[in-house]
């Protein structure tokens, strides 16, 4: 039955090569902790991806309640945290995931760096990885404002003041992010929401796609 359904779709869309490209690939033995325990260092990249998936899923549930305006943002987070069934778990996972993903990504970066895995022919993948790092920090920075509590507002204030010190483009960059040259308020919150939920995740998915395609093409770097 399943085979027939597969054949039916395959006849029309020729999915066998796609399936072979996505799922059928080999993994070198030296990256498997089941063979050598020290190979756990190769898990950090996969765990980063795992947390990213959890962040996307928990974030989708958070937006079911979250309201990005300065009157209701705090109240909606407060409600989510205290009244909604499992709200405290969903928000907790998103909150802790944000920290864990930075930790895992940092460890992954160090693994690749110290193993010299960025060398020819993997230079481009390293560059994409560093860009992913930047996008992740941006996600952390913009997401921090969204609950609209004291620490959120003042951390953002400081962050934007630092952005302002950049010569030439600083003030324009701040105005673009905050929606105003001086005020950090309603506009800032909606902009950070849009950046956090649409712009940066879009960039992240694109970069991650490129990251994975390159790994698939080149394979994981060999043992030292």
């Amino acid at each position: 039955m399943l085979q027939k359904m597969y054949d039916w779709v395959d006849e029309r869309l020729d999915i066998t090569p796609m399936w072979r490209d996505i799922a059928d690939h080999e993994v070198p033995e030296h990256v498997n902790p089941a063979h050598h325990f020290s190979a756990f260092v190769y898990c950090f990249g996969g765990l980063t991806f795992f947390i990213t998936v959890i962040q996307i899923l928990s974030g989708m549930f958070l937006t079911m309640y979250y309201v990005p305006d300065i009157i209701n943002a705090y109240e909606s987070v407060h409600y989510l945290q205290n009244e909604v069934a499992f709200g405290v778990i969903v928000r907790g996972m998103h909150h802790w995931g944000a920290s864990l993903v930075i930790v895992m990504m940092f460890l992954h970066t160090l693994r690749v760096f110290f193993q010299g895995a960025y060398k020819k022919p993997r230079e481009l993948n390293w560059v994409v990885g560093v860009l992913i790092f930047g996008v992740m920090l941006g996600l952390g920075f913009t997401g921090y404002l969204l609950p609209w509590d004291m620490k959120a507002l003042f951390a953002t204030k400081v962050g934007l003041e630092i952005a302002q010190t950049v010569p030439v483009i600083g003030p324009a960059m701040k105005a673009l992010l905050a929606g105003d040259a001086h005020i950090i308020g309603a506009q800032t919150l909606t902009r950070f929401f849009a950046i956090h939920v649409f712009f940066l995740p879009g960039a992240l998915l694109g970069l991650m796609g490129a990251h994975f395609i390159m790994i698939r093409k080149q394979g994981i770097s060999g043992p030292l």
């Binding site: 705090y74 907790g92 909150h95 802790w96 509590d149 004291m150 620490k151 950090i184």
Partner: peptide, 10 residues
């Protein structure tokens, strides 16, 4: 539990 301080007061 993930922290939530009081509402932002600019």
């Amino acid at each position: 539990e993930s922290p939530l301080e009081r509402k932002a007061d600019p």
